[in-house]
Design a protein around this nucleic acid. Sequence first.
DNA 1: ATGATTTGACCCCA
DNA 2: TGGGGTCAAATCAT
Length: 298
Amino acid sequence: MAAPATAASELVAKGRKSAAFLRSLLGQQPAVGAGAAPHGLQDLAEQILRCCERALAALRAATEDAAAASSARKRRKPEQGAVPTPATSSNSKRMRLSGGERATRAEKRRTMEDGFVWRKYGQKDIHGSKHPRLYFRCTYKDDHGCMARRQVQRSEADPSVYLINYFGEHTCCRGDDVAESPAPFVINFGASTRDGQQLIRGSPWSSSCDDGGGLVVSETSDLCHSPEEKELRAGMGDAAELISEQSTPPPVPELTSMSSPEWHPLDGYLVCDDIGLGESLFDDIGEFAPLDYVGLFQ
DNA sequence: ATGATTTGACCCCA
DNA sequence: TGGGGTCAAATCAT
């Protein structure tokens, strides 16, 4: 990760120290007047401390992600020695694009919502695959010349899993609605990444971050250990390796509906990452963005 | 009216 | 030459 992140990390660490000091000071202070609220102040100090700790954890996670993505990129020499997975083998022919451009692994966590607004521009039945491949490009291609694209295809082994390939870099930043969102956080759909692909349990139809393309999350919460997932793990073999780092997903509300011929709301799951340092992610929802947009950026 | 999606056609490349 | 990626007109949704 770059120097700015290190600097941010140091600053947050300083803030954390200050908050800890403040807390200890408040703890030493005898109760002042009857009207004073030392507990409230202590709570405030605690809160600041917790925020700093979370920020540090997030920065650490981002650093690790960047490192992982970077090593994944280094590893990406598809023609040399890489064992093509069943999922990629059908893609292999066109993984290299016209300009010599390569598929890049999405540098985001395993979330369906990646914070960008996608427009579907094509769909193709793939030879030997039961499910068509869907082609999306950034909505801001015309506005900002953003050439980012993604391909989404249902897994053969588990139709509730989507394999996603990303191509090109976003030069548009994000949609305005997204840009307004403060501190996005992770909604993990139980997807995983491998060799430029993401496995997404959910729907590819969340191609928009605006109110029309929100997120449907199931109230089902035991995905992590579902028979389907075990079967998928076994069935995907080399093709995909589901990362099982999820914490226990809390029940979550249904946010919006998505219309799609193939989209079944119960296919989508919400699995929280460890952003809450052991707490429920949704304890903190109020502190973050409205849930009509959730996502994570690298 | 405008923007998004669908889908057949076309192009490129292995 | 066949399969995959993209284009663009038609259609749909808001």
